[in-house]
Structures are given as C-alpha cells and as structure tokens.
C-alpha cells in the first residue's frame, strides 16, 4: 500500500528536554496502527508535531504526498488529518447537534445536514441525545461524540490520543468496533494507547516510542514478545 504519512528525522527539544529525537516513521494508507510507550516517551508530543501545534527543530513531515511541515494546524486538518484528544475536546455548553453541525457543516457534498447528523448519532449510539448539552453526557459518550466530530472533517488519517481513557470495558470494546468500521470506510488510524487489550483489538502494527525515539515496531505479537519492551515499560530487566 502507498504511504499516507512519512516522518523523517523529526526532532524537537524544549530546553534540555528532547521530546522527539530524530523520529523516522511511516504509515501505509488504510492502516490501523498504535503508538505505545511509557509516560514521557514523547507520544503526545509526536501527535502535536504531526498536528502543527509544535514546530519541529529539524525533520520533515510528508502527508498524502505533500510536505506539511510548515503548515498551520487548520491547514493540516483541511489536507485530511483529524484528531481526537485524550480529554474530550467538545463544546460542552452546546447541544450534541450543535457540536456535530460545526464539525460537518462544511463537508456535506450535497447531502443533508440533518441526515448526516442522524447517521452519526446512530453510529455513536447517541440517538435521543441530539439536544442534550454535550457537557452532561457520560464520559464515554463525550469520547464518542468527539470521534464523530473528528470524522466530520473527512479525514484520511485519524489521530486518536488515548481514545478509551476513562471508559468501561464495554465502552472500550464498542470504541474498538467503531474504529474498525471507520477504517473499513477508508480512514487510516493512528492511536496512542496504554490499554494493551484495546491495542490488540484494533492494531495491525504497533510502534514503541521511548525517550523521543522509535524503540521498535512490529505486530502486536512481536511487540509483546520483544525482550526490551516490558523492560522500558516496567523498568525491569528480567523479561
């Protein structure tokens, strides 16, 4: 498959703290990929660099055949990258419908906004919550609403920062099913995740980040069997 994302020599430091230390990373179009690593490994910083929230000190980011390294965040979103944050980034005082309207209104291609919203409410199991203020939804529902909003901008690549944080096991499983369905619609998925059962549910390949560098990459089975991964996760060397 063709590469949708290619990162070469990406480096970013805040003073003496290096959050990206020459990262080389690529992602095939249509992949479901997870990024794992201990706290402070640089996963969220890597996402911020991809989204243009941090400017890299060195390196290039190529997305869908074009260099996006110098683009602003909103321009990258328009190119086809979308994101769901760890803490739900929704409009809490607005209704669920208003949240979806803002996300979908410029991406209808002749379809009706009402029908699109109905479809997304069904997809995220939020039927009946259309007029509910988003801030009073349960945590899991807020996460799903944000996934729906992220899908609204017609992404080719969807970045998910711990999409199941704070979810029950049932909600986590349902989220995995949602992501599989989005992937089947042609959206490439790159998720930062700590829950290994969820990683196993969704990821075809996994990349381990450590101290701002790629530590290793492989299938979930290869990662679990990798002698160094548990060591960097747990700080033990008896694996």
């Amino acid at each position: 498959m063709s590469e949708i994302l290619k990162v070469e020599g990406l480096r970013k430091a805040f003073g003496g703290v290096v959050v990206a230390n020459g990262i080389d990373f690529s992602l095939s179009a249509g992949a479901m990929h997870c990024l794992i690593g201990p706290n402070g490994a640089g996963k969220s910083s890597f996402f911020r660099l991809l989204l243009g929230e941090h400017a890299p000190d060195a390196g290039t980011i190529t997305f869908d055949g074009g260099d996006i390294t110098g683009l602003r965040s909103f321009q990258r979103i328009r190119r086809g990258i979308s994101v769901k944050f760890q803490v739900p980034g929704i409009f809490k005082a607005l209704s669920v419908r208003q949240n979806l309207e803002v996300a979908f209104q410029d991406h209808l291609h002749g379809h009706s906004l009402d029908a699109t919203i109905r479809e997304m409410l069904e997809f995220t199991d939020l039927q009946g919550e259309e007029m509910t203020p988003a801030g009073i939804l349960s945590h899991g529902q807020q996460q799903w609403l944000e996934i729906a909003m992220a899908v609204g901008v017609e992404p080719k690549l969807l970045l998910l920062d711990e999409p199941t944080a704070g979810m029950s096991p049932d909600e986590t499983h349902k989220t995995g099913e949602m992501l599989h369905e989005l992937n089947a619609r042609g959206i490439t998925i790159l998720a930062v995740e700590h829950d290994m059962a969820f990683v196993e549910q969704i990821a075809e390949r996994v990349t381990v980040l450590h101290f701002g560098s790629i530590f290793t990459e492989g299938t979930i089975a290869e990662i679990i069997d990798h002698p160094g991964v548990q060591e960097i996760y747990l700080g033990t060397s008896d694996v």
């Binding site: 989204l51 909103f74 979103i77 328009r78 994101v83 409009f91 809490k92 005082a93 208003q98 901008v153």
Partner: peptide
C-alpha cells in the same frame, strides 16, 4: 464554538 473551545475549532479545520 470558538467561544466554547477555540482549540477544538482549529482542529476542525
């Protein structure tokens, strides 16, 4: 939406 969460609005393009 900008009043509520400008960061998210930027991340909607």
């Amino acid at each position: 939406a900008i009043r509520e969460n400008p960061h998210r609005v930027g991340m909607l393009g």
